[in-house]
């Protein structure tokens, strides 16, 4: 670890109060720790409802974290009052999942892309803003003729590119992509992912890439973290997670990737994950996965396994792989 990571998330926790539930809370994000180096992509995967999006929204302060810290380039943003957050907001932006819901239907594309400029550079003249917007539109493969159209006139792929233009017009350092391709059809997915990669090389962007299918994450990420019920259960280099998945949950996820060849698919022995995600309002005691784990032991229901380095650069939170000398604080994936 020669350089300071761009984003460092430490023990981040976000609990939502349950309406009418008294003191009970939804454990959306629980004690999540990871970091992302400048210019790399960190993939965050997990089933629907495991807290990936809540994690992203807490990092970017759409939600206020319950506890824990988020450092962007060494500056703390988790506890920062909203007023002092503005310069930090400029440095991190977000691309949303649903290109139909994430653009305001009552605004033209020009106004949608101009919103970040208006929020951060009040002194900018309209002509200057237009110039930046047109340049940005051309970068994402649209033309200035599109600027006066309303978002509902565009196709899904075009809309997602408008969302990307909105996120990138401020030239952020960190871009959080919250399942940016899962609402698009397959041919468009590749187009968007390639565009994101090109921008990463050109602008030196750092991505936090959230997805629920592992195949796409492998293609875009340098490192991958697997989340289950609000916790990180495994974290390592992207290729490593495919070649040597350690956590039973990761293994289950990998097995659930569909195989496009039916003859090969018939050879698949182990089945994917079974059962449903337990309620995040009162998660199972001990290891949260033990209710669905095929290898569950007595200790799993009692004691929560710490996230430890089981192999060089490969962290996992599972009693099957916990080394004796595990020290949860020295987590590192380098």
């Amino acid at each position: 670890m020669s350089e300071r990571p761009l984003l460092r998330v430490t023990n981040l926790t976000k609990h939502f109060p349950v309406r009418g539930g008294g003191r009970r809370v939804v454990h959306a994000v629980d004690d999540v720790t990871f970091h992302i180096d400048r210019g790399t992509t960190f993939g965050l995967v997990g089933e629907s409802g495991c807290g990936k999006s809540s994690c992203a929204r807490t990092i970017i302060r759409i939600y206020d974290p319950t506890s824990g810290s988020v450092e962007l380039d060494g500056q703390e943003i988790a506890a920062c009052p909203a007023r002092e957050l503005m310069p930090m907001r400029r440095r991190m932006q977000m691309i949303f999942q649903d290109p139909y819901a994430s653009l305001n239907a009552r605004m033209t594309v020009r106004d949608i892309i101009a919103e970040p400029l208006n929020a951060h550079f009040a002194a900018l003249s309209r002509a200057q803003a237009d110039e930046m917007i047109f340049a940005m539109l051309e970068k994402v493969g649209l033309t200035r003729e599109h600027a006066n159209r309303y978002a509902h006139e565009f196709s899904g792929g075009q809309r997602q590119r408008v969302g990307i233009a909105r996120a990138l017009i401020l030239r952020p350092d960190l871009v959080i992509c919250d399942e940016p391709i899962s609402a698009l059809d397959v041919s468009i997915q590749a187009q968007i992912v390639n565009m994101l990669r090109d921008f990463q090389q050109e602008l030196g962007l750092t991505y936090l890439f959230i997805a629920h299918d592992l195949s796409m994450v492998r293609y875009v990420s340098d490192h991958v973290g697997v989340m289950y019920l609000g916790q990180l259960v495994e974290m390592c280099a992207a290729d490593e997670i495919y070649s040597h998945p350690l956590h039973p949950y990761t293994q289950g996820l990998l097995q659930s990737i569909p195989i496009p060849d039916p003859r090969l698919a018939r050879l698949k022995t182990a089945s994917g994950l079974e059962g449903d995600l337990p309620s995040p309002i009162d998660p199972p005691a001990g290891c949260r996965f033990h209710t669905r784990c095929p290898y569950a032991m007595a200790v799993c229901a009692l004691e929560q396994p710490p996230l430890c380095e089981a192999a060089p650069g490969h962290c996992v939170a599972c009693h099957l792989h916990t080394p004796r000398n595990c020290d949860a604080k020295s987590v590192s994936i380098e």
Partner: peptide, 19 residues
Amino acid sequence: EFVLASRAIGSSNRTIMLT
């Protein structure tokens, strides 16, 4: 999501309300 996006951008409450 478009309101969340506006928050992530850092738009003021006034802007979110009026636009």
